[in-house]
Amino acid sequence: MRMRSWVLGACGALVVAGSGAGPAGAVPEPEADLALHGSAVMTGDRVEVSLAPRNDGPAATPDASVLLRWSVPLAEVQRLPQGCARTDERSVVCGIGALAADAAGERLTVSVRLKGHPDEVTLEVDTAWLGGAVDRDRTNDRLKVLVLGTGDAYAF
């Protein structure tokens, strides 16, 4: 009987110890809320994306980047802005820099050429990196936009 009490007591201690927020002395991850707004225009085989990032806080982020992904392959040769790099046949990642809490970042404009001349393309915009911060509200930084080849701007 004495052994059973010890085992139950040890199991209870493990449950209590395992229910904490993390190891003692661990620094909690900062929380930032990145919001991405902008527009996309498709003319011929070109899509121009204009993006305005905003960090609604509560913490600043020392560095951030966004991922732009198209539903069709990109042309082989691209002239991307500084701070952007192609990651695969349909995606580009771009640094947007540090973002203070409750502040807007610098506008980013990316123009890409598509393979062929599609009538429409779906653009996915997503956060790629928040400099170690956590974003618990992904509804305003993970977006899908249908862009028609009309030359009209589609806002998101």
Results as ranks from 00 to 15, higher is better:
Pro118Ser: 09
Pro28Asp: 10
Leu68Val: 10
Gly95Ile: 08
Arg142Thr: 11
Gly9Asn: 01
Glu76Pro: 00
Pro81Val: 00
Arg142Met: 06
Glu106Gln: 08
Asp135Pro: 02
Ala24Arg: 11
Ser5Asp: 14
Val41Thr: 11
Met3Gln: 14
Met42Ser: 01
Gly38Val: 07
Leu146Gln: 14
Thr122Glu: 15
Glu124Ala: 14
Arg46Ala: 09
Trp70Ala: 13
Val66Gln: 03
Val93Pro: 07
Gly116Lys: 01
Asp56Ala: 14
Tyr154His: 15
Thr61Ser: 13
Ser91Thr: 08
Ala26His: 01
Val125Leu: 11
Ala98Cys: 04
Pro62Gln: 02
Arg107Lys: 11
Gly105Met: 00
Val47Ser: 00
Asp137Val: 01
Pro23Glu: 15
Ala17Ile: 04
Pro28Ser: 09
Pro62Ile: 03
Asp33Thr: 03
Leu146Asn: 12
Ala155Cys: 03
Ala153Ile: 08
Asp152Ser: 14
Leu74Thr: 09
Val110Lys: 06
Pro81Phe: 10
Val72Cys: 08
Arg69His: 02
Leu14Gly: 15
Pro118Arg: 12
Cys84Met: 00
Gly149Ser: 12
Leu146Thr: 14
Val66Leu: 07
Met3His: 12
Glu48Trp: 00
Ala26Arg: 10
Gly38Met: 06
Pro81Lys: 06
Val47Thr: 09
Val72Gln: 10
Ser71Phe: 01
Thr139Gln: 08
His117Pro: 00
Thr61Ala: 11
Leu14Ile: 14
Asp141Val: 04
Gly97Met: 03
Val77Ala: 15
Val110Ser: 03
Ala64Tyr: 10
Arg138Pro: 08
Val7Lys: 01
Asp33Phe: 09
Ala104Ile: 05
Leu34Trp: 02
Asp135Lys: 04
Gly18Lys: 06
Ala52His: 13
Val66Lys: 04
Ser39Thr: 03
Ala128Val: 10
Ala26Tyr: 00
Ser111Met: 11
Gly38Tyr: 07
Ser91Tyr: 05
Tyr154Gln: 13
Arg69Ala: 11
Pro23Tyr: 13
Leu14Trp: 09
Gly44Trp: 08
Gly44Thr: 05
Pro58Ile: 05
Pro118Asp: 04
Gly25Asp: 11
Ala153Leu: 02
Asp141Leu: 01
Asp126Leu: 14
Ser19Asp: 01
Val77Lys: 14
Gly105Phe: 01
